[in-house]
Design a binder for these strands. Structure first.
Lengths: 158, 158
DNA sequence: GTCGCTGCAAAGTCTTTGCAGAGAG
DNA sequence: CTCTCTGCAAAGACTTTGCAGCGAC
């Protein structure tokens, strides 16, 4: 289950495209395309981008009760998606991880400490600066992540 | 145990200073200064800055076996230290947290994915930029953290 | 048909909590 | 003395794993 052959970099990808990427990934690695896997991918795609395995599982149970999808399958599929670069996990101090679809690079987040909501942003200047810093320190960057904590607009108005 | 009154911002603080800060913090909150708490603070100070509760506990057991410090106390003290702003916890994807001494703000890290070592850095330009971004988005920043993953100089030369 | 996938429940991690006795102030 | 701390063990939260039957290919 390691060293999966992939190469995605999907920023704003359509679901059909995503699904087809996923399918060819599975085929390439002699894995099987199952209803559960499709449902997990689809739910992740259609939902608010940041979900915990737990909340993803609940969503799926509510929407597809006949499937009786187990939490273990959710975990297994999320690992698969992460390993293949289709999804990324985030872990910000809080317990557990959250998952989002997307490429593995250039992910920055604003996290509201009141309501827990996560807003994404990208800033070219910061990206450049990061590259420069790593070069100066002789470090070979492969990835990075940045989080800013604070209180979002909505919660400030409460 | 919440809303502790503190205000430290110790970047390169001497141990005596740190200890006295800690003591006055305890006094201010009617908490007690115990051998265990001192040993935990001291060990965190003297060690490589980034320790898991587990490894901190082991270090302490090795160095002060007569104390028979329990892991629960380590967790409790680390939470206390974090809550009071003396220590900060980091959680980078991997399981569990690591702790370091220091202020709550302006913490950026270079993490080697080969050897797991963590290098710290601060870049004023990025700090400014972050402030600007949050302002633009109507977000009230309280803290931030940034991690860059890659391969450090040492591991590249292997 | 084969071999990977799934749900379930059991087992693992890591962390927190309850409690009674120990100890700081 | 009082009231917080501590170690221990038990309980919790989150995640992984073993297994037997199911289902994709």
């Amino acid at each position: 289950m390691s060293n999966l052959t992939t190469n995605f970099n999907n920023k704003t990808i359509k679901y059909k495209q995503l699904l087809s990427n996923f399918k060819s990934l599975l085929k390439k690695n002699s894995l099987k395309f199952t209803v559960q896997r499709e449902v997990i991918l689809k739910t992740l795609y259609n939902s608010d981008i940041h979900l915990t395995p737990e909340s993803l599982h609940q969503l799926i149970q509510k929407k597809y009760p006949e499937l009786k999808t187990g939490i273990a399958t959710v975990y297994r599929t999320l690992s698969l998606l992460e390993e293949s670069g289709i999804a990324t996990s985030l872990s910000f101090g809080a317990q557990g991880k959250k998952y989002e679809l997307g490429a593995k690079k250039h992910h920055d987040h604003l996290i509201c400490t009141e309501c827990g909501s996560i807003t994404e942003f990208v800033d070219e200047e910061i990206e450049h600066r990061q590259q420069k810093i790593t070069e100066e320190l002789g470090f070979k960057m492969s990835d990075h992540s940045m989080q800013i904590y604070g209180i979002c607009k909505k919660c400030q108005n409460k």
